[in-house]
Design a protein around this nucleic acid. Structure first.
Lengths: 111, 111
DNA sequence: GTTTCATTATATCTTTTTATATTATATTGA
DNA sequence: TCAATATAATATAAAAAGATATAATGAAAC
């Protein structure tokens, strides 16, 4: 259970601001899709381009945002650059997002 | 483990867009703090104002956003209006955010 | 019962910031 | 020189934040 009672307001606000930074970075469909792919395992840019149908400059720009925020890291192999997750926080969030929004839940009346 | 392999691109993008809607709503320090409080249990506006030191019009405006997005619901008791969580998705996300960003983790070198 | 107070919500601006897409060009490695 | 990726430079739109004022509702005093 979440329990913040007793934590001082400044600390709370500082945590909220840090957390918001990450959430803003996730709040874009392209970036979310990119992270969804990358969180399954290393991906190079052309893989991502093909899987997601995002065209190259946009892709590169959004990957740049993810890099700047420290959510992903890169490894070069010849011409290609491979991306992988660099933030355990982001990985944890992606996991819960996937569970909540992507795992089909049959809707039925209470009984 | 997250595994989206094989899900068709349109479905993926639709899920991403829905998910982004919620993430955008969370991507504001005031709203995040509000949800943090409310996710611990019902709170009336004046409780929130006191706990978070957000002044009234801002508070009311941000609570309005949370209502519009279906993240919280309200109950009136006399002059006061009580807020509580209305979205299990949001609750799940708040939980993981709390675990990742608010639970202190001592940083130490690997050994 | 109507005036008044407390609580909460809305409306309206203003300013600033941020987002997104596009096109072109640069860098790096084979 | 080609293929893969990144950066730059815009243009345009969007929206977010903060302030101020005012409205609506319920309770209570008188």
């Amino acid at each position: 259970m979440i329990t913040t009672t007793g934590i001082d307001p400044e600390t709370m606000r500082a945590s909220a601001t840090r957390t918001c930074g990450m959430l803003k970075t996730l709040s874009n469909p392209d970036r979310l899709l990119l992270l969804c792919q990358i969180s399954q395992g290393e991906r190079c840019v052309s893989d991502l381009e093909e899987a997601l149908e995002i065209h190259q400059p946009t892709l590169s720009q959004q990957l740049g945002v993810l890099r700047d925020e420290g959510l992903v890291s890169t490894r070069r192999d010849g011409k290609r650059i491979f991306y992988s997750m660099a933030s355990k926080e982001a990985l944890a969030v992606m996991q819960v997002l996937f569970d909540q929004f992507c795992v089909a839940k049959p809707k039925r009346a209470k009984r």
